[in-house]
Simulated assay, not measured.
Amino acid sequence: MPSNPRIDLDSTDHAIIGNLQQDGRMSVAQLARAINLSPSATADRLRRLTDAGVITGYSITVDPEALGYNVTAFVRLAYLTGNYKPFHDLVDSLPEIIEAHHVTGADCFIIAVLARSMRDLERITGRLATLGGITTSVVYSSPVPSRHITPA
C-alpha cells in the first residue's frame, strides 16, 4: 500500500510504466522515443512517478532453477501470537523465503519458498513449523508466473 497520496496518471504515464515493465533497462532516450516525448520531459515524468511512489525500483528476473532452486512451494502458517518479531527474525534468516503475505482467514501468513530439493524444503518448513501449524503446497508448474501491472 503506497504511503503517498494517489496521483492522477495520464496515458503518457501509463505508457512509461508499460514500457519500463517490458524493459527496465531501457534508457531515458529509448523510452522518450517509445512514448514520443523529449528526453528531458521523459526524465521529469520518471522523477515525478518515482517521487510519488508509483515506480518503486528496478530489478531483474532470474530463473530459480538456473540458480539451483528446483522446488517452489507455498507454505501457509497459522501463527497464533500477535508478537511478530519471531516471525520476522526467522524470515530474515531464511533467504529461501522470497515472499511473505499477512492474510485473513484461518492462516496468518502465506509464504513463497524456493528450495534446492525436497530435503531442503523439509528443512525450511521444519523451521517455519516452530512458529505454528503449517500447510505446504509444492508447485508443479506456473502457467502465469508474473504479470505486469496496468494502472487501475
Rank of each mutant, 00 (worst) to 15 (best):
Gly57Leu: 05
Thr12Cys: 02
Gly68Ile: 12
Leu20Arg: 06
Val91Asn: 06
Gln30Ser: 14
Gly126Val: 07
Asp89Leu: 04
Val71Asn: 02
Pro5Asn: 03
Ser27Phe: 10
Asn83Ser: 08
Arg33Ser: 09
Phe109Lys: 05
Ile55Thr: 09
Ala112Lys: 11
Ala15Phe: 01
His88Asn: 08
Asp13Tyr: 00
His148Trp: 12
Asp63Ala: 13
Asn4Phe: 15
His148Gln: 11
Ser59Phe: 11
His88Cys: 09
Arg48Gln: 07
His102Val: 08
Leu80Glu: 14
Ile98Gln: 13
Asn36Ile: 04
Tyr79Gly: 03
Glu99Met: 13
Pro151Cys: 09
His14Phe: 11
Ala52Val: 08
Val71Asp: 02
Ser142Trp: 11
His14Thr: 10
Asp8His: 14
His102Lys: 09
Pro143Ala: 12
Asn36Ser: 10
Asp92Pro: 04
Leu80Met: 15
Leu90His: 01
Asn36Met: 13
Val75Asn: 03
Tyr58Lys: 08
Ala115His: 06
Lys85Ala: 10
Leu121Asn: 05
Leu80Thr: 12
Thr61Trp: 12
Arg48Tyr: 11
Leu121Asp: 03
Gly105Cys: 04
Ser93Trp: 02
His148Glu: 14
Thr12Tyr: 14
Arg47Phe: 12
Gly132Arg: 05
Thr42Leu: 09
Met118Cys: 07
Val138Lys: 00
Pro145Arg: 08
Arg116Asp: 07
Val138Glu: 08
Arg33Ala: 15
Leu128Val: 05
Leu114Ile: 12
Gly53Leu: 02
Asp63Leu: 13
Ser137Phe: 12
Ser3Asp: 13
Glu122Val: 11
Phe74Ser: 13
Glu122Met: 06
Thr150Trp: 03
Asp13Glu: 06
Ser27Trp: 02
Val71Gln: 02
Ile98Lys: 00
Pro86Asn: 04
Ala29Met: 12
Cys108Phe: 15
Ala78Glu: 15
Tyr69Pro: 05
Val103Asp: 10
His88Arg: 12
Ala29Val: 14
Val71Glu: 04
Val75Asp: 02
Leu9Trp: 13
Ile55Trp: 01
Glu65Ala: 08
Gly133Cys: 03
Pro143Asp: 07
Asp89Ile: 07
Gly132Glu: 03
Arg45Asp: 05
Ala100Pro: 02
Val71Lys: 00
Arg76Ile: 03
Arg116Pro: 10
Ala100Cys: 10
Arg47Pro: 05
Gly18Cys: 05
Pro86Ser: 03
Ala52Asn: 01
Leu31Gly: 02
Glu99Pro: 10
Ala15Asn: 07
Val138Arg: 00
Met26Thr: 02
Ile7Phe: 07
